[in-house]
Design a protein around this nucleic acid. Sequence first.
DNA 1: TTTCATAATTGTAATTATTATAAAATTAAA
DNA 2: TTTAATTTTATAATAATTACAATTATGAAA
Lengths: 138, 138
Amino acid sequence: MKEIQNIGSELLRFDIKPSYQRIKIYDYLLKNNIHPTVDMIYKKLADGIPTLSKTTVYNTLKLFEEHGIIKSVNIEENEIRYDVQTHIHGHFKCEQCGAIYDFDYNYNDLKYSGLENFILNQTDVMIKGVCKTCASKN
Amino acid sequence: MKEIQNIGSELLRFDIKPSYQRIKIYDYLLKNNIHPTVDMIYKKLADGIPTLSKTTVYNTLKLFEEHGIIKSVNIEENEIRYDVQTHIHGHFKCEQCGAIYDFDYNYNDLKYSGLENFILNQTDVMIKGVCKTCASKN
DNA sequence: TTTCATAATTGTAATTATTATAAAATTAAA
DNA sequence: TTTAATTTTATAATAATTACAATTATGAAA
């Protein structure tokens, strides 16, 4: 897990003003590296911040992504998930339990054809299947 | 482009009963290899089939995917796109014009770590950036 | 401290993609 | 032709996200 001593100064490092809500949301993402949805984040934090609005969660995640402190993961059909890991890695989605796992792959060995003169900004490798835990149950 | 002489018999090959609507939708997918959305398919075909319902398009695409004759592409945040190409390939999304391009990559050279004892069913490589056409305009 | 301007948060309503459901139409079989 | 099964259709419901305006909090200047 990514260890941040002072969440406020980490946000400032990315030019994000550290409000109470923003600190709480970033703190949650750091401590729960489970690629949560907006709804999961909102529901968990609403207990501790009774006035929290879901719009704030949306606004904050969008802001975080624009400033490059988190990434959105598009592996689901219907909803966006969020990820604080900053190194390049792939995502595995278990078709049985729905969990999303990180994995490493050999990014530099990946060679393409058909993208000559294209500008590549972001590469994502996504795999669907059955995770180890579910596979052992069957 | 995938060349199909007889669309009806191609559908039958995948155990899909070739109704009028199904033939029209599959024909559109074959002739318009642009990873269209449900809405794009519906709007184009509604001219020729005035009674066409969007639900039919949804039902048909779901059926097609279940029978393995098409694949859904999840590169967009908010909507699903559809693809008739059956060989393994990646998808490139242009952040400027929004177009989605196919590209080839060396699938067999892709090595993972962290997925030991996982069952892998489907791999997708997605890249975002700026396409050749848009890049030359800038 | 008070005032003022700016930024952040909130609640509500609107939008959009998708799914559920049941009726109507079509097809295939007896 | 009658009947049953399948397909299509229209409408309503769901769910994620965005738009928007009002409220609240923050920080600097007077």
